Computed example of a mutant assay.
Amino acid sequence: MASENAGLLTNKTALAYVGLVLTPLFWAGNAVVARGTVEQIPPLSMSFWRWVIALVILLPLGLPGLWRHRMVIVQHIGSMLALATFSVGAFNSLLYFAAVSTTATNIALINATIPIFVALLAWLLLGDRTRPVQVLGIALAVLGILVVISRGDIHVLTGLDAQPGDLIMVAAVFSWGLFSVLLRRQAVPLPALTFLTTQILLGTLVILPFYLVDLVFFSGGFDVSGSTALPLIYFAIFPGILAYGFWNHGVHRIGPARAAIFMYLTPVYATVLASVFLNESLGLFHVLGGVLILTGLVLATRVGRRAPAYLRSE
């Protein structure tokens, strides 16, 4: 019996590692697929219908929890709405807007700095203690972002000639940082599935009026076909539901500090996928910026620091 239990635990741990390897692949795919389809699907349509599909998939499983914990949800509706706005609503919509005018590689590199923004905002807003080595890590990661945004040319920054998409992506990462800080300050006592379902439901409602304005006055929506439906299904299932589940399971099995290391795979995956499917070339500034960002991440998220709340539904 003991050997069977040990074998079962080993299998669960192995599955956790497999899930943690796949999760950054799904996140990288989010940027690459968005960049490849943003001319066919407007950003707000992409964000809105992605979450509608995810909600349709989740509701049969999450609805009992919503009903069972309805009083908790009502009591914390303000906090839940704020959390949904910064995560499901703003973060993903901004990421898709960024895909209009920057590369998938840039999106992934800037997106990789989420833990840095979480640490910085936790220090500024929550008064978290930050060790000197973490300050150095934050500084290096910020420098790496500037290298990516400037494309290695200081005149891009001084001349305010940065790509709009890069700046929008910085705003997206900042939005997720605010979500993470609020999640710590205004923790809502809900099971994971109920919390996720509520967040997607509220976030979809937040996006709805912006989507309708965009649909009527600006983009006009998109034509439904295999080339537009499949990306939306991918967004809903892989970087959404599966990545969230795999990530949470991995954190539970091996701990947040070890799981955080797998986040470093996201820009690596994105660079390869963007090169293969979008013919994006890797510049020297990508390499230099990536090295600075990843070095900063290693220093700022060292084992021993309480892991930030950046569990995501990208």
Rank of each mutant, 00 (worst) to 15 (best):
A6L: 15
A6P: 03
G7C: 05
K12I: 09
Y17W: 07
G19N: 02
N30L: 11
Q40I: 13
P42V: 05
P42C: 07
L44S: 07
I53G: 10
I53W: 09
L58I: 03
L59P: 01
W67S: 02
V72C: 03
T85L: 12
V88Q: 10
N92D: 05
S93A: 14
A99D: 05
V100H: 12
S101V: 08
T105G: 05
N106M: 08
L109E: 00
L109I: 00
I114F: 05
P115F: 09
L120Y: 01
L124F: 10
V133D: 02
A139S: 10
L140V: 11
V142Y: 15
L146P: 02
I149H: 06
S150M: 14
G152F: 00
D153L: 04
V156H: 11
G159S: 04
L160Y: 07
L160A: 15
Q163K: 15
G165P: 01
G165R: 00
D166Y: 05
M169C: 07
A171D: 10
V181E: 03
T198Y: 02
L202K: 05
G203H: 05
L205Q: 06
V213Q: 07
F217K: 09
F218T: 08
F222M: 03
S225C: 08
G245D: 09
G245E: 03
F246Y: 12
N248M: 15
H252C: 04
G255P: 00
R258Y: 06
I261G: 06
Y264V: 09
P267F: 01
S275A: 14
F277M: 13
N279S: 15
E280K: 09
L284P: 05
F285R: 09
G289Q: 08
G289C: 14
I293M: 12
V298I: 15
T301F: 04
R305M: 03
R306I: 10
A307M: 13
A307Y: 06
L311T: 11
E314W: 11
